[in-house]
């Protein structure tokens, strides 16, 4: 149990795929609405979900990664049916038609609902993404020890 005897959820978000991020934020927002204390630990490809649309990278490879996997959450592609961006466009149209919230809006709602978001320090170092590249509301980076403590205390643990 988390603070004040609340139920809690601890989630690793490793994927940067659009579909998986939808799942992650729908669950996070649902949990927050149900009064749960929510921790999202973003690592590797998941980091872009909390990134602003800014250039990152210090070294040649870091800059290359920042260019090829740059932008923000709106650049995420579906894990299947991607077709070099066509899939994103198509799902965007389909979801818009069915009045599903946009992914970036869901992410911002999560911040608003008090979901605790953390970047993984090690992935941030490797991928050369500094804390100031993240949106407001993302807490200072942490490591696996912090996540595991949260996961131990949590009633629900997920890996996405």
């Amino acid at each position: 149990m988390g603070d004040e005897g609340k139920k809690s959820l601890a989630m690793v978000v490793m994927s940067g795929d659009m579909d998986k991020l939808f799942g992650a934020f729908i669950i996070a927002n649902g949990a927050a609405a149900m009064g749960m204390d929510v921790t999202m630990f973003f690592t590797f490809w998941g980091l872009r979900a909390i990134k602003k649309d800014v250039r990152t990278g210090k070294t040649f490879f870091g800059k290359m990664l920042g260019t090829m996997y740059g932008g923000d959450i709106t650049k995420s592609n579906p894990s299947k049916f991607s077709f070099g961006g066509m899939g994103r466009w198509m799902f965007g149209k389909m979801m818009g038609k069915h009045n599903v919230q946009k992914l970036n809006e869901m992410r911002d709602l999560a911040v608003q609902l008090g979901v605790n978001m953390y970047g993984c320090q090690m992935s941030m170092d490797v991928m050369e993404i500094p804390q100031d590249a993240f949106i407001d509301g993302v807490k200072e980076p942490v490591g696996v020890g912090f996540f595991l403590l949260k996961a131990q205390e949590a009633d629900v643990q997920l890996f996405i």
């Binding site: 729908i26 927002n29 649902g30 927050a32 609405a33 149900m34 009064g35 069915h98 009045n99 599903v100 919230q101 709602l109 609902l113």
Partner: peptide, 15 residues
Amino acid sequence: KGLLCPLPMVKVSQN
């Protein structure tokens, strides 16, 4: 009306 998962629940919670 028109809202999809998880928004109906979120809106009730917020209100």
